[in-house]
Every structure is written in C-alpha cells, then in structure tokens.
C-alpha cells in the first residue's frame, strides 16, 4: 500500500470504520514507514487536542432568561416583538393582525354610528328679538355697519353741526361717542361709550339730529359707524 493511499484512510482508521483487511494493511504500513507514522501522530495529536479541549461554558445559567422570554411571549405578541429579532418575530405577526383588524373595525363602526345619530341634533334656542344664529347681516347696512377692509368714502357732514350751547353745557372731561350714519344720511343711532352720561345726554341727542352725505363703497351708499372723541377743558389766563 502506498503512502498516499494510507494517508487517505486516516479518518476511517481513527473511527475504526475500515474493513479488517484494510485496517491491517494500514497499520502494517504505519509500523514500517516513519514518514507516515509521523504524519499519523501529528494527525491524531491535532484531533486529540481538539477532543480534549476544555468545554466552553456559559457564565451563568440561561434557564431563567429563556423562561422570562417565554413568559413575555405568552403575555402577548405585541410585547414579544420587542424582544425578538425580525425573523423570529415573523410567526407572531399574524396573531397581531387579528386584534389590529378588530380595533380598526371597531373604530369604523363607532364612526358610522356617531355619524348616523348626528342627523337629530337638538334645535338651538333663540331668544325672541335677538339676532339669530346664522348668516350675519350684509356689511354696510344699519344692522352691520362694519367693514373688514376696503376703501370707504365718507361720510361727509351736511348742514349744521352740534350747537355751541350744547357744547358749552358739557362738563370738563372726555366723551367718546359712537354713531351710525345710515345709507340715507341720517344718524341711525348714538351710543356714549365713555364720559359722563348725564352731561353728554344733550350732545348725543344733537348728534342724532345731524345729517350726512352717506358713505359710499364702490359707488353705492353704505351705513358706517362714526366714532367721535370730544374733550372739553376750561383754560384760564394765568394771573400775573
């Protein structure tokens, strides 16, 4: 038997798998060939070293950690997904989809139910004489003399102003008065916003009697609010 053939049977010889005749032939060759004997010794030394190598042991028992992981999985797939890699979590995706689908169906059903019941909302109570909820009066009318923006021309004063004796009756102080100049030039209302009410009574009445060239917006007359600030103070010459 040649050396190359003998060395090809080293694995079988180590396992004791060789047929009796082959086993005898290989062993006979090893006894007579120093090179093959040295090769066999190196071969068995390497494998014996591996077989006798110390067993690698975990630093701590893993039973507790494994049981904890199992407990997490038993509690619910949602939590378990956090503790498992993606490929291991894949079997838990389908169980997770079932409760997810139930939640979505519940939300849809609740939405449809609430939407159906909104048809019978209660009526809003409106006090008689008050402005009802709904569309606001058109801007530029006496009921809504306000503009959010835009150029408004006027109003321009027409005729006499406030009589001088009315102004003379005012006590010292500041009066802030809101009037609404209607679309026909008359004063639709007057309200004292600040100042002595008793002293300003005749002033407000006088203002209600005034007439104006109505304000115009894009060529048509509109009602506007007109605010007037009147201050009165007595000024005396210094005594020398």
């Amino acid at each position: 038997m040649k050396c190359t053939q003998v060395r090809r049977h080293f694995s079988g010889l180590r396992d004791g798998d060789l047929p009796r005749e082959q086993d005898t032939a290989v062993r006979g060759h090893l006894a007579s060939c120093p090179d093959c004997r040295a090769e066999w010794d190196a071969y068995t030394c390497a494998l014996d070293g591996l077989a006798r190598s110390p067993r690698l042991e975990p630093s701590e028992s893993m039973a507790g950690r494994v049981l904890n992981r199992l407990e997490v999985e038993r509690r619910g797939p949602g939590l378990a997904l956090l503790f498992r890699p993606v490929w291991a979590a894949r079997p838990l995706i389908w169980p997770s989809l079932i409760p997810a689908a139930l939640v979505v169906l519940s939300v849809i059903a609740a939405t449809l139910f609430l939407d159906r019941s909104s048809d019978v909302l209660p009526d809003v109570y409106v006090r008689p004489g008050s402005m009802a909820w709904g569309a606001a009066p058109e801007p530029g009318t006496e009921q809504n003399p306000f503009f959010a923006g835009g150029a408004v021309d006027g109003p321009h004063h027409r005729g006499v102003g406030v009589p001088a004796e009315v102004l003379a009756e005012l006590t010292d102080g500041t009066f802030f008065i809101q009037t609404v100049v209607a679309r026909d030039g008359s004063v639709a209302g007057g309200t004292l916003l600040a100042g002595d009410e008793k002293s300003a009574a005749r002033l407000v009445d006088a203002m209600r009697q005034q007439r104006f060239e109505p304000a115009r917006y894009q060529g048509r007359p509109v009602a506007v609010s007109l605010y007037r600030l009147i201050s009165r103070m007595e000024v005396r010459a210094p005594v020398i």
């Binding site: 090809r8 080293f10 694995s11 079988g12 180590r14 396992d15 071969y43 390497a46 494998l47 591996l50």
Partner: peptide, 10 residues
C-alpha cells in the same frame, strides 16, 4: 466531510 475537515484542521 469529516475526513476533509480533520485534514484541514491538522
């Protein structure tokens, strides 16, 4: 496979 592995380890 074992035969090849043993030889490779050596």
């Amino acid at each position: 496979r074992l035969s090849r592995a043993r030889l490779a380890l050596k």
